[in-house]
Design a protein around this nucleic acid. Sequence first.
DNA 1: CCAGGATGCGCGTCGGTGTGCCCAAGGAGA
DNA 2: TCTCCTTGGGCACACCGACGCGCATCCTGG
Lengths: 159, 159
Amino acid sequence: MALDRKDLAILAELTTNARASHTELANKVGLSSTALARRQKALEDDGYIQAYQAALDLAQFGLTTTVLVRIALESQSDEALKAFEAEVVKCPSVVRCFLMSGTDDYILIVLARDIQDFERIHRTELSRLPRVARVQSSFALREVVNRAVPTVVFGEAKR
Amino acid sequence: MALDRKDLAILAELTTNARASHTELANKVGLSSTALARRQKALEDDGYIQAYQAALDLAQFGLTTTVLVRIALESQSDEALKAFEAEVVKCPSVVRCFLMSGTDDYILIVLARDIQDFERIHRTELSRLPRVARVQSSFALREVVNRAVPTVVFGEAKR
DNA sequence: CCAGGATGCGCGTCGGTGTGCCCAAGGAGA
DNA sequence: TCTCCTTGGGCACACCGACGCGCATCCTGG
């Protein structure tokens, strides 16, 4: 299934206003509400739209510190990876975790209130992860770009 | 302003179903639609809810490859940082960019269709960034955790 | 020329939303 | 201890808008 520029406009708008009504979207895209409803439903049914979710302001919850954590395991055996991953998904402060190529085995993104709070997280969450050989943390001083969707997605207009 | 467990339940539900109606949410949380509407509006006005946005399935767009890019600049001067940041925000394939402490100056998260596509991105987007001394890329083999909100946010029940 | 897909218009129904009012609980002060 | 006041909740209602349907139209490709 190919998406034309109107589909992309719909997606671009919904990534900003997920609660926009059919009429509202139809005006912005340049369609009637009927045609828009059909297209939106197709986008949902075909899996382009996964969900509609509220974006929380994490700073409002005091989570102003982002930490990148590089972790190397003692062993790269399948059993070690499984054991580590089974525990890392339980860490409440971890928002992302990648299994990486290269020297580091895993890279985590951790959210903390501040540096002291990260010390607590390091002690209560990270240091309890199994099979860990080395943990290296880097603090993000500033977030320069934060996009949910790369702009390249909306750039390709076809029809 | 302090949030009680019902507020957190509302937020937790809205991060899943941003288009849920007042009645629908009220049933899940255990409130009347009136009380829920008041709370939801308060959460929006107080800035806890930043926006409602559609989550796209990036794999559906062919973006299945995540790359972590570490970048060191020639100079850490304010001018060099500003020049670099002014350009990196324009890169369409970059979804996140952190100014970091430690040896690396910046860490980017880049989305690509595949490894060949990343070669193109490296050539057309990354290599054109100004003041760059060193670029080091690591491929994510798998995404173990991907949360928009750390679960720790919903864990604290107070009232 | 014809057929299929997509669009736009109009309509009716349904549901959500917002308001006003009353009630219950808790805290402060006399 | 009694009372007042504030805060949050629930109920009922009315209005308005969204949503989905049917049908006519248009455009394109065969």
